[in-house]
Each structure stands twice: as structure tokens, then as C-alpha cells.
Amino acid sequence: MTLMPFRLVAYHRVSTARQGRSGLGLAAQEAAIKTLARDRGAEVIGTYTETESGKRSDRPQLLDALQLARLTGATLAIAKLDRLSRNAAFLLTLRDSGVRFIAADMPEANDLTVGIMALVAQQEREAIARRTREALAAAKARGTRLGNPNGAAALRRAGKGNEAILGAVRENADRHAEAIRPLIEELRAGGCTSLRAIADALNARGVMTRRDGRWQVSNVRNLLTRLDV
């Protein structure tokens, strides 16, 4: 009797259409799953890439990937489960699918792990939204002009009382930086180490700054500092 080889269905996720076109984060995810397949002696029988925003709850590519895994008895392979830990919809869909899964960065993860992560993700998102609403309401009551084009700098000048808003700004900046981290690692591994070279490479790939602008040396320096690179 010939044993069927260990089979994987690869699932990648990028959060915006621009990231999907530029390959931002995609190459690193593909490499992680290929390494996982090689180390486990597995065959990748299908690959699905989702391009969706954090606000969407539907995951058509994920559902297709789960369906293929379910029909073939394959295991769903994910590159980085930890980066999806705040996406409750994804985690709950994964937990309730009945399909075996493996994450390249957390191979020990199981249904219990994912269930706990989903609950924490839901609670954290609701807490952040509540704190932001309360902070905005308090700032408005004090007469603070909201939507200042100077952003975080204006909030710092406004003084105390805007900590929650500043926290939300910092969190958005951190999230954007983490999304770019795999590409930065890829560029540096390929010998692209100077600030100017990294800026040029990001611009050449169509990757935008958090404010949808072109990369300058100062932007890259700030990004690397935020990533502690």
C-alpha cells in the first residue's frame, strides 16, 4: 500500500490591492511556505492569495482554500499566524472549518490556540475603538480641532488628554511598519542596505509610505527605527 504524501494548500494574505500588485509581503509568505513544505517533505497542491482590507469579514480565497483542503484531506498552510492574530474573522473561520492547518511561524498552534487568539483579537479591537471614540469626544469637548493635517505633531502640541488618540496613531504606524518588514528583510538580505538604496527599491516596487507618498531617506530611517532594525 502506497502512503499518500503530506499535502498542503497554501494561503497568502495581503491587506490592500496595492500590496497585492507590488508583492509587498507576498514573496516572504511564499518563501516561508515553500520552506515549510520542503522541511516536511510535503507537496503544495494549491495556492490561494487573498487581497482584502482589515474591515472586510468575507474571505472568498480562504473559503476556496479550505474547501480544497477539505475535499482532498490536505492541510492548510499559512506563513505567519502571529501577524493575523488581531483578525478575529479569519481566526474564527479557521477554527470552525474542521480543516487541519499549520503555520510556518507557529507550527505548534492548534484549535485552542486559535480560539483564544480570536477572543483576544475581538476584545482588543473593541477596546481600541472605544478608547478612540472616548478620546475624540473628550478632545472635541475641550475645543480641540480634530482632523488637523499636522497629525500626531499637532496632537503632541495640544498637550495632555490626547494619549489615546496618540496611541491610535502610533498603532497605525506600527501596523504599517510591520506590513513592510518582510520586504525590508528581503531587500537587506539581497544586499540593499543603505537608506537611499532601500528608498529607491521601495519606490521602484510601487510601495507607498503610510501617507501614500514616495520614500525618502528620512522615511526609511524612521521606518527602520520603528522596526528596531
Rank of each mutant, 00 (worst) to 15 (best):
E126Q: 13
V114Q: 05
G147V: 02
V120M: 15
A177K: 01
L81C: 04
R145I: 15
T144G: 00
I128G: 02
A197C: 08
N162L: 12
L66F: 04
G151Y: 05
S85H: 13
E171D: 12
R125A: 15
A129Q: 11
I102S: 09
A141L: 12
R188N: 10
A154L: 05
R175Q: 11
R100V: 07
A177W: 01
L146Y: 12
N162M: 09
I198H: 05
A137D: 15
R145C: 12
I128A: 11
E163S: 10
L195G: 03
A154I: 02
G167A: 06
G147N: 06
A89W: 07
R130A: 15
D111I: 02
R86G: 10
D96N: 15
A127S: 10
L66K: 03
L155Q: 04
Q67Y: 02
E185G: 12
R125W: 09
N203C: 04
A69C: 06
A153D: 14
D200Y: 00
I78A: 02
L136Y: 03
H176G: 00
I102P: 11
L187S: 12
D200E: 14
L119C: 06
G115L: 10
I116H: 13
T75S: 07
L136K: 06
E186S: 14
A179R: 08
A189N: 15
L91T: 09
G191K: 03
A74M: 05
E186D: 14
E126S: 12
D105M: 09
R188F: 09
A179I: 00
L166V: 03
L94G: 03
R86P: 05
